[in-house]
């Protein structure tokens, strides 16, 4: 029998303590939920970026992942359901010095907020969108999402999901995102590096992170959290620059991870300055 002794714990602090609202930890996410890992990875990337922390802002929508904004010790905004991206758009345009990160979930960003996502990507708005994809509406108790696998069980698809899910990197690519990657929360080191890369790129960056929802997805689909992580370990293939059209999620066949798109295209602000402002100065 071993215990963690008190004096042993008092020494150093957690390296991310300076970036979290310690008075709000432990957070609300369930045991085994991967959002915390993705969130922690995002904070590590922010910390490692070497950029002025006061110039970061995190914007979230509604849902489990949407609660992230409430735990980061940066300027942070917990907005309405699906509206994180347009809110972030206004914030960024009002102060282009800000590094604006949208941290939210699949339901928020791609169902209710899907229209905003494609338009921000089309405009190449200079923001980084981090999407924790847990395949389900977790906060409301496990309803089918736009990302729920075909035939999976949810409270609103008790007989199995008759619909097919989005291929999110393909959607992001087709909409015009200039940086697109996918990882799982188990691939934390790659993820941290990827978020760091996305933060350093100008333009619309999108990273999808597969993450377990043990309570509202795993439980109904007979998947223990540890089994899901093993699946992330064993049934994934890292294939950078893969064709976005091949990125449907199918764990039987193997899920492709990696950085798929990394290109340069003028941002909304650059184009606005060039096309709108300069015309006026002639």
């Amino acid at each position: 029998m071993r215990y963690n002794s008190d004096n042993f714990m008092k020494k150093p602090e957690h390296p991310l303590n300076g970036l979290i609202r310690k008075d709000r930890i432990p957070h609300i996410w369930c045991s085994g939920c991967g959002i915390g890992t993705v969130f922690s990875s995002c904070l590590t990337s922010i910390k490692n970026s070497g950029l002025d922390l006061n110039k970061f802002a995190m914007v979230s929508g509604i849902g489990c992942s949407g609660r992230a904004a409430g735990y980061v010790k940066l300027d942070s905004f917990h907005t309405t359901h699906g509206r994180a991206i347009p809110f972030a758009t206004g914030l960024k345009l009002a102060n282009t010095d800000l590094n604006v990160i949208v941290f939210s979930g699949d339901g928020d960003l791609f169902a209710i907020g899907g229209n905003h996502f494609i338009h921000a990507a089309r405009r190449n708005m200079d923001i980084t969108v981090i999407c924790v994809n847990n395949f389900i509406y977790g906060m409301t108790g496990g309803q089918v999402a736009a990302t729920t696998p075909h035939s999976a069980i949810s409270t609103t698809t008790p007989f199995g999901n008759p619909e097919s899910p989005f291929n999110l990197p393909l959607l992001a690519y087709a909409s015009g995102a200039t940086y697109v990657a996918r990882w799982t929360m188990l691939h934390v080191r790659d993820l941290t590096e990827s978020i760091g890369e996305a933060l350093s790129r100008k333009g619309f960056s999108f990273i999808e992170i597969l993450s377990p929802c043990p309570i509202n997805y795993g439980r109904r689909n007979k998947k223990l959290p540890m089994e899901i992580l093993k699946m992330y370990q064993e049934n994934t293939i890292i294939k950078n620059n893969a064709d976005p059209a091949e990125l449907d999620i199918d764990f039987e066949r193997g899920v492709i991870l990696g950085k798929f798109i990394d290109k340069d295209r003028p941002t909304y602000t650059e184009n606005y300055d060039k096309i709108c402002r300069s015309t006026q100065n002639v």
């Binding site: 206004g90 914030l91 709108c276």
Partner: peptide, 22 residues
């Protein structure tokens, strides 16, 4: 800055964001 958003929901979201941007 002027931006034509994708709908009125986004329009109000964007002006709230801009307001917090100062």
């Amino acid at each position: 800055t002027f931006i034509q958003m994708e709908d009125e929901i986004a329009a109000v979201a964007s002006i709230l964001g801009a307001s917090w941007g100062g």
